[in-house]
Amino acid sequence: MEYGHKVQAGEATEGKATAAIETYTAQVPSGVFLAAAIASITASLLFKAQKRDHAALFVGQWVAPFLILGLYNKLVKQHGSDATAR
């Protein structure tokens, strides 16, 4: 394996399963992921106020994945899943 080789546009493609998933998830508004993150923060704060520390930590850890999924969703909408799809 040669290190330093960069993949050029059109040199690699996504699988059919990935393309199908992205076609479906691209229909979800990006605001849904932001709302889920805010709801997770709110739920975590409520659990913490109720002295349910384990539940607060568990639910609070959902924030980052929701935001990352929202970012991925936004990137797929703007750039597509493959450079060859443009």
Rank of each mutant, 00 (worst) to 15 (best):
K48M: 09
V32K: 07
A26V: 07
G60S: 00
Y3R: 11
L57I: 14
T23R: 12
G31V: 06
A83M: 02
F47S: 04
Y24W: 12
G15F: 04
V32T: 11
L71G: 10
S81C: 07
N73Y: 00
T13E: 11
Q78P: 00
Y24A: 13
D53P: 00
A49D: 05
A56L: 03
V28M: 10
P65E: 00
L75G: 04
A39Y: 10
H54R: 15
A64I: 13
V63T: 05
T84V: 15
R52W: 06
L46S: 01
Q8E: 14
A12Q: 06
V59R: 02
Q27A: 12
T13M: 03
A56C: 01
A19T: 14
A26E: 05
E2P: 15
F47V: 03
A26R: 12
I21H: 03
G80L: 06
K48R: 08
G4S: 04
T42L: 08
D82A: 10
A26Q: 10
A19E: 07
G60I: 06
K74F: 10
K74H: 11
A26I: 08
D53Q: 08
E22Q: 08
L46P: 03
G80V: 07
T42H: 04
L45I: 07
S30W: 07
A17D: 06
A9N: 12
E2H: 15
G70W: 02
Q78W: 07
T23D: 10
F33R: 00
V7D: 01
D82F: 04
G15S: 12
A12I: 07
K48E: 01
